[in-house]
């Protein structure tokens, strides 16, 4: 328990540090202006979302291999938090795209893949809630977790080639990410660390809750 509190505390401190860095310390990007500061939230969340889906596939394979309920609870918890982070990644991405490109959305390979990623893992969560509880649902989830993960690079490739055929419509000032200054890199790393610790904390909490849920579920059926 103290480990968790440490995790939550350090995540909170890192978030404060990140906000301080974003508002008071990092230089303003010459081309993108203030809006570039969204980057320190958006990109770390994107990376953490992807980390979450790696955890899902590890938990899925682990469940099928070892039949361990812990692995399944881990996969489920990671999928739920991954969807949360992907949702935030998409929303913050749109809020970044609007001032920079003048549009809320564009079908770039990254954006398309992120959206499909969101659909795949939302489908995973729906499958879990509609499938029978216990082993059967866990097996279905694990198979979906594996298939979904393998699908992601194929989606990215298809979206990339599709972009070649359908060149991007003219959008505002082209946001070439370009090189980051030293201070920007530091702020980005602080952001990455802050969101990773937050992810680890949420994952542990959700994992425990999920374990308790299935335990109570089983107790109810064995007792009634």
């Amino acid at each position: 328990m103290t480990g968790r509190l440490t995790l939550l505390g350090s995540s909170g401190v890192l978030m404060m540090l990140l906000l301080t860095l974003i508002f008071l310390w990092v230089p303003t990007d010459i081309v993108l202006g203030i809006s570039q500061r969204i980057f320190y939230f958006h990109v770390p969340m994107a990376l953490v979302a992807f980390l979450a889906f790696v955890v899902v596939v590890v938990g899925s394979i682990g469940y099928l291999w070892k039949k361990s309920e812990r692995m399944d609870a881990l996969a489920y918890a990671a999928a739920e938090i991954g969807v949360l982070f992907t949702t935030l990644m998409l929303i913050t991405g749109m809020l970044w795209a609007k001032p920079v490109w003048g549009v809320w959305w564009t079908w770039s390979p990254q954006l398309t893949t992120s959206l499909i990623l969101w659909f795949i893992y939302t489908a995973y969560l729906m499958l879990r809630s509609y499938a029978p509880q216990g082993d059967q649902g866990a097996r279905y989830g694990a198979v979906m977790g594996i298939i979904g993960f393998v699908d992601v690079p194929i989606v990215y490739m298809a979206a990339k080639w599709w972009r070649d055929v359908h060149p991007e419509a003219v959008v505002g000032p082209l946001a070439d990410e370009g090189s980051l200054e030293g201070k920007m890199v530091i702020a980005f790393l602080v952001g990455l660390l802050a969101f990773t610790t937050l992810f680890a904390y949420l994952l542990m909490e959700r994992y425990t809750l999920r374990r308790q849920e299935s335990l109570v579920e089983r107790l109810r059926y064995s007792h009634v």
Binding site: L19, G33, I34, S35, R37, I38, F41, H42, M45, L84, T87, L88, I91, T92, L95, W96, K98, P99, G102
Partner: peptide, 20 residues
Amino acid sequence: TEGEDYLPFLFAVFAVTWMA
């Protein structure tokens, strides 16, 4: 969405993230 008037977007990002 002109000049440096991007601040509302930055605030929206923080608002949405924290609310979530």
